[in-house]
Amino acid sequence: MDLVESYAQDLRFARKSFTRALLGLVLLAVVAFPWVAPDYMVFIATLVALYSIGVMGQNILIGYTGQISFGQAGFLAIGAFAFGHLRIWGAPFLLALVGAGTVAALAGILVGFPSLRLKGPYLAIATLGFGVAVYQIFVNWEVLSGGRSGLAIAKLKPMLGLSPVRYEYYVYVLLLAGFTLATYNLVSSYVGRAFVAIRDADIAAEVNGVNLTRYKLLSFAISSFYTGVHGALYAQVLGHIEPQIFNILESITLFVAVIIGGVASIEGSILGALFVILVPKVFSNFREMVPVVYGVTILLVLIFEPLGLFGRWLKTRLYFQLWPFR
């Protein structure tokens, strides 16, 4: 029987025993994965983990706050190169990660200023401009980008006797778990409510005491922090970065992941990341078809399942909850 007896109980993380059991199973599977899957699959899972962080950040901005941004490639590049330089100067991994996120967050605040005036497609164009500008700056400013040869980043030294691939997987999955938990907490707090309020009715949010300037910029800052960390983790995995990696397609990929995974859904962000990583792998023999797959999937999702993959999961769950009554 699902009976809530206090407000505190109502706010508990994973309140229902079913949710807790499911969560336990997922965690078990995630921990066991590298011991049963080949190294190649483990590497792909690592990519999914780091993309999930970026998609989650993008979802905070697009899904929760309702501010369309196409400038994510810019934040990715800023995060990646900040991370690269910090690592080359000898900063330890975690410190460089926080540094990369912080630099990206500061850039995010700057980009957020147009959002105080612009809405919808106009904001999308302004942020698109930012992404392209950052790309051009890195391509043309060799001091930042390391020139033609790019930046080389030292691999992580595995600990606990794990193989490098497994070690990286566990580090990234742990980071993803941290970010996921923080995101859950954030969106269920007063901050998350302010974000959704701005998305659903900005004037009403303002009249109810939500400072639009502060919370729009905060949303941009948090989102670009996530994206900066994504960029940094990506740089670490690749071991070598050059500006050409962070072109406009990266922005679009993150956007696609948000829409397909599910707008304003954390689980959806992970599903979306899974999608944009797996599709290019599955279609690796027809690489030029990948954008077509994205486009068609977005159309299908918007027509048949506006809540994305996560919405499909919700409906499936409802089906079993109501079974055999339909």
């Binding site: 505190a8 706010l11 993380f13 923080a182 907490n185 707090s189 998350g192």
Partner: peptide, 11 residues
């Protein structure tokens, strides 16, 4: 407190 799920204020 928002990040760490301290919920005294909420309650």
């Amino acid at each position: 407190t928002a990040l760490l799920r301290a919920r005294g204020e909420e309650i």
